[in-house]
Design a protein around this nucleic acid. Structure first.
Lengths: 148, 148
DNA sequence: GTACTTGCAAAGATTTTGCTTCCAA
DNA sequence: TTGGAAGCAAAATCTTTGCAAGTAC
């Protein structure tokens, strides 16, 4: 009884359309930015990047769009161990769950995938009969470069 | 190379004193509440409970005390998958790391320990040479009782 | 055309800071 | 006694809401 299967890596826009979500100029832009991001974005990042292309885009729209994507389980919300304030970070969901490693010293975020993690999820589902929808693993510590 | 050893289950107050932290009436009370809590507490909970015994205790003191405990790695900060708002929850650190399972439907929080989890941490430390200080695993989904 | 979205402003919620007074060691 | 801590008020952050105007389908 494996974890619920993940959303395929299909453009978020297509995914939304297929779910009957109305596509606006703002949503297209935000979704495009999230999808092509090479780092984890917070609301401010995302808004700033979006305003470069559409200066009228309001921050509230960013919140609302992220809420929409969360509702559809198309993005994951992370805290990255609260390295800085209580800000939340977002990333498009990929095929496989992964673990985030946040370096306390340099702030670098690494991602880590592991079959042990998949096994652990299986164990939880079996032993607790808990149907996992989302899972988040975040580790804080010192990365290889910060152990001198 | 196992994960950094955990703080023993010694009264938080003793732990703080041994670290040279000044113990005030307010800190003693808060620490006592956190330690004896049978659930995950957020700032408001904690404050309300504290005020029953010391009505003058200020909410800011709750924040500051939690900050102190976090700094000393004596409590873990959780989000419990943001089931309700962006509130943070706290729990005294125990000997073993555990996983939190948050039910999307009924809100129940279960804890889960597993040797697989310990193995996973070991793998991260070995393969990425990442020295883990804190690790948090939170799963959201449907608990056994909520799958009808 | 109609229902859903956006922008704007304002409110809410949560957390932090400045400063004076107080207290633990 | 003295540096750190608490209380109070105010500010700073982050997020949500109400509503009029705009827009996707």
């Amino acid at each position: 009884m494996p974890t619920e299967s993940r959303v395929a890596r299909r453009p978020l826009e297509q995914e939304l359309i297929s779910r009957g979500v109305r596509m606006t100029r703002q949503r297209r832009l935000l979704v495009e930015i999230i999808q092509s991001a090479d780092q984890h974005m917070d609301v401010l990042n995302l808004w700033q990047k979006a305003r470069q292309q559409d200066p009228t885009l309001n921050k509230v729209t960013v919140y609302r769009t992220l809420g929409l994507l969360k509702k559809h389980r198309l993005v994951d919300e992370l805290d990255l161990m609260h390295l800085e304030s209580a800000r939340h970070y977002y990333e498009a969901r990929t095929t496989r769950d992964h673990i985030h490693l946040a370096c306390i010293k340099c702030g670098r975020i690494q991602e880590f995938e592991s079959s042990l993690f998949e096994k652990l999820k299986g164990q939880i589902e079996r032993e607790r009969r808990f149907r996992i929808s989302v899972v988040r693993v975040e580790a804080g510590g010192y990365c290889d470069k910060c152990q001198e």
